[in-house]
Design a protein around this nucleic acid. Structure first.
Lengths: 207, 207, 207, 207
DNA sequence: AATGAATGAGCTTTCATTCAT
DNA sequence: GATGAATGAAAGCTCATTCAT
């Protein structure tokens, strides 16, 4: 399919780097983080250890590229979709749905990135605290408008992010899952949980 | 002879093993999984690499013991507390609360165990699928009795477990958190989410 | 000849370290500094790379030990001999003679140490400046007492040290040299050069 | 086309080679011999590794050129100056002075050449033995004419060369030195040392 | 029961060199 | 004439494991 031979020396710099990033993702995903040696990754990319280190100054830098690439892809994917939503409820639905959708499209890349962040002290990442902050503000704006119930927006934001981030694991480990169904159920779960308390409908009673 | 000294050779078999397990947890928690060499763990336990391998046939076996110990401690902690709860709602509240409570008491051990399971291909563990199964049945029984709304019990069970398992990370990384508050908020979040839909609040009554 | 087998595991820590230091000296001396890989040195010592790194935390540390060992041996060798000399002239003769004598006894060790100091940025050494300082003071005391001529003691000290340090090279490269003769000639050369100018003795003639 | 730009491809063959030689000298002098990779040298010369190997068939050949260039420059520098001296004493003074003068003018080049000769087995050089031979003959001619004392001309020649060759080190390492003074002191030192013995200054005679 | 010593496999990284363009 | 890309050899180092004592 490729226009030239697989390991052709005419591959552009960009293409080789992408090959290596994809290979790193594949190896981490299939063989596990500890088995992901540079040798193994390079072979998976159809090249040699020396070439890998020609394109990335170190293994760390390759891993950094794996992480950065995912974050950039994710940001681009999210950006356009989030603009459409107007109300807090719609925004929350879109936020959860889009995040999970992106994960279903790149489960291995997401999983590999999580392993890299956990294990590699040197790789720079947006902190989880920061990752949850926009979501917390979204929840707070919904509470301010009365669309959402009263709850600790910080804890809820962290919980939602945890479920989103944890999803990659299931999506990879259990290929039999109906992902669309899974996504809509998680969305529904959290929408129910932020609903205002059904409050005393009429005048008098209430349990 | 030197029964009082810290690194005494007369420590019982049991005590040495526990020292090593605790040391492994500490090293993984503080220095990260990749830095947890047998040498480093043994030194942390006040003994030598040779001694560590005298008590555990391999590093794998030590890690297996870290995992098994946590699971046994967790099961014991949970068992007595879960018996008290009667209704599905009470059971769910207790399940979440007790799990999180246990994690607040052993965040490093929980975190280390997660790293081990993620990275060590050989360590045997109860699968996450299985871990969520009792919870799924609890949710289904609540749906059957009408206490819970209609939702996919499997997806909900997985989400709850994900939030519980993810909590160790926050409890370790953010010591400023008010853990009691955090726990009660997570409990409340999921109790809201399983509540039956408040049905059209038209004219008359409604429970 | 050795009481046990060559690579016997019962060798004491001290003995192994000395073997490795000696092997490093031999390899650097025979094959040159760039060829002195840890692998090569370890094989020369009759052991493995792993064992070498068990006894020395790094190659740098092994080299540091090569240097330190030589300095300690040299200091011990010098100390006792230097005490006997009383006058500046005797002290200077003894200084040069003893230094060169030590070098004839350890030419490979001296040469290896020079290569290490030149090439390894990290190895700590007494600076050459410092090495020449005692010699400079010796010369100055001789000038003060009138035994030595007037000259720049610093430059002379540096020159003497340079000749001494450079001698290891000849002693190694040219085994045909008569070392005793060589030493006494160098001593004579510098004794002549510090002699007071024969100055117009009496009234009449001269220059 | 881009004949003015620094890294211009239209630089003449000769100029590029000189750039690379100068860059090699600079890198060895500043970063040390072990750090002098072809990559590092090429970058210092404002070009690429590939280009460096286009101009020199191998790294060895580049180093050979560093050495040869220095020897040629040195020989040219020396030749004209040495012709003026007539007597052995004048010749010796000029020899030492001119050699040291040349070193003060090219300390980095001299130092780099010494490192290369020491470390590179393959680089061809005039042997030190040979380097000292003309000097030995000079001393012998002075002895024959009675201008110099009786001493081993070989040992003295080696000592003088050692001091000369060692000077590059000081000139590089201690920029605060007064080089003119240093040179004249070394000249004086050796002139004193070759002086005929002032013979017992008893009563009567004297030379 | 404990441990120091030894080892080999495997890791990341550096580097001189080759080659197509 | 110049260079980016590729590569394999070799380096220093880490580490789990074996073993004699």
């Amino acid at each position: 399919m490729r226009s030239k031979e697989s390991g052709s020396p005419s591959r552009t710099r960009r293409a080789r780097r992408e090959d290596l990033i994809a290979a790193a993702v594949r190896v981490i995903s299939q063989d596990g983080y500890p088995a992901a040696s540079l040798e193994r990754i390079a072979r998976e990319a159809g090249t040699s250890k020396g070439t890998a280190l020609y394109h990335f100054a170190s293994k760390e830098e390759l891993y950094q590229a794996v992480v950065t690439t995912l974050f950039e892809d994710g940001a681009a994917f999210m950006a356009e979709r989030l603009r459409a939503a107007k109300t807090p409820t719609e925004k929350l639905r879109t936020y959860i749905e889009t995040n999970l959708r992106f994960i279903t499209l790149n489960p291995a890349h997401v999983g590999a990135t999580q392993r890299i962040i956990e294990n590699s002290g040197a790789v720079q990442v947006v902190q989880v605290e920061d990752a949850a902050a926009p979501l917390r503000r979204l929840l707070e704006s919904g509470q301010a408008s009365g669309e959402f119930a009263v709850f600790d927006a910080e804890v809820t934001a962290l919980s939602i992010r945890t479920v989103i981030d944890g999803a990659a694991f299931y999506f990879l480990a259990r290929p039999e899952l109906d992902l669309d169904h899974h996504i809509s159920e998680i969305v529904a779960l959290f929408l129910r949980s932020v609903r205002p308390v059904p409050a005393a409908p009429t005048a008098d009673s209430e349990e």
